[in-house]
Design a protein around this nucleic acid. Structure first.
Lengths: 238, 238
DNA sequence: GCAACTTTGTTCCTGCGTTCACAAACGGCT
DNA sequence: AGCCGTTTGTGAACGCAGGAACAAAGTTGC
């Protein structure tokens, strides 16, 4: 799934330019951002809420409300300036600053993540890799040498890691998580199939393959039990 | 994130034993399932709602309500029989039947998924791998030979694939998705950073690394800007 | 410069999901 | 057997998120 571990909401901060942003809206804003950058590459300079909403798969009213959290940067009768909008969303999401990422657990998945290089959509440089396996320590993966997990607190503090990604087996996840927190990391992306226990000021997001599959299984079970008739690959669209 | 693409709800089916299960509850049930199986391995035969809720990181009232969708299988004054509960949740989630999985895009991530072998927590055998790269076609990955993407409709139909996992680059995702749908696949797990357009009866779940990181970035930005002081790795817990 | 059209920003409303709180039920102990 | 403590299951309140609808604003054409 990948949900907030607890049903927490956005932070009720006040001094920042916008009001409290609902959690769900934050996720959608990240999607708008992707759609926008993709459109900009295609030379689109202006989009209406209707167009953007369609591309992102949401209701246009929802989109406008989400954008209102960012501020009023649209032009009535015209739409939104794509470049300007990207700029403001990036600012709201804190993407102007770079976030140093550490990957723990260099197995199959860890390898895959480390090799992403600059990490998807820039702004998230991977600056540390960790594993327990002595044979792996020192070996460069994706151009970065692997460090031993025991050095997590020290290395994370030194390299100012802000986001820790846990790709270890379930059994090691909580331990690794504690080490990351000890190293000052307050944002954790957890791929291990465990519910992590963390202090209140640490944000955990879970990406759980098994849960995803089981949810799909549920929707599959509730249905005209069976598969879809095989169709022509041409006719698509919902 | 990994959300429903649209904010759809559970299916308003009637003949099945339980009432309509809220979408959010389905995700949590999958988590309870994991916690329960883990506890059973440790020899625990009974758990109270409070214990189980704590381990899953949710409110105990929420947990009880979620379990009430499954049916009333607890004993007042005692708690829930772990084995019995697992059985009933598995039934609700449709895990009694096996769900054949196809992985499309055998890059870093696809490799990682294919090598998971039986796929996390059983019940999801990977029965087909696809890629566009001719050099990869025929090569066995995790014991299964890779097929060409062009054969997706035919192979998926033949092997009765129920879940398609898309690990391709963004540009190929929609195309691959259409092929899967053409092959009769109605459940799709999408790792590509794109919003897929699908017919209404196809269920898509998205796992989007970039979005996850950006959400974490947002929460990091809204805070007493900075990292956590480096602490002793021992003192933890929220 | 004015009018008509387009599109935003926002307000209101509806509905779901989460939580609280309590009554019913069950086991254990005397 | 009856009482007491414990824990479930659910009815009701609360709060947030999503969608519809409208008024303000701005642009384009004449």
């Amino acid at each position: 799934m990948t949900v907030h571990q607890h049903g927490r909401y956005s932070t009720p901060v006040d001094d920042l330019p916008s009001r409290a942003v609902p959690e769900a809206a934050v996720g959608r804003l990240a999607i708008y951002l992707r759609v926008l950058t993709s459109m900009i590459e295609q030379g689109v300079t202006t989009m209406s809420s209707e167009e953007l909403a369609g591309a992102a798969g949401v209701n246009s009213a929802t989109l406008r409300k989400d954008l209102s959290y960012v501020g009023s940067y649209g032009t009535r009768g015209v739409g939104y300036d794509t470049a300007k909008l990207v700029e403001h969303i990036e600012q709201l999401l804190g993407l102007t600053r770079h976030h140093s990422v550490a990957v723990v657990g260099i197995g199959n998945l860890g390898h895959a993540l480390a090799n992403y290089g600059g990490f998807p959509d820039r702004g998230f440089p991977v600056t540390a890799l960790f594993d327990l396996d002595e044979d792996l320590v020192g070996v460069p993966v994706g151009g970065l040498p692997v460090d031993h997990v025991d050095t997590i607190p020290a290395v994370c503090a030194e390299r100012e890691v802000t986001i820790g990604v846990i790709c270890t087996p379930a059994a090691a996840a909580q331990w690794v998580c504690d080490l990351l927190v000890a190293g000052g990391v307050r944002c954790i992306l957890n791929f291990a199939p465990v519910v992590l226990q963390v202090p209140a000021d640490v944000e955990v997001r879970r990406v759980d393959l098994a849960v995803e599959l089981q949810i799909l299984s549920f929707y599959q079970a509730r249905r005209s039990h069976g598969r879809r008739p095989v169709t022509d690959p041409i006719a698509v669209i919902g």
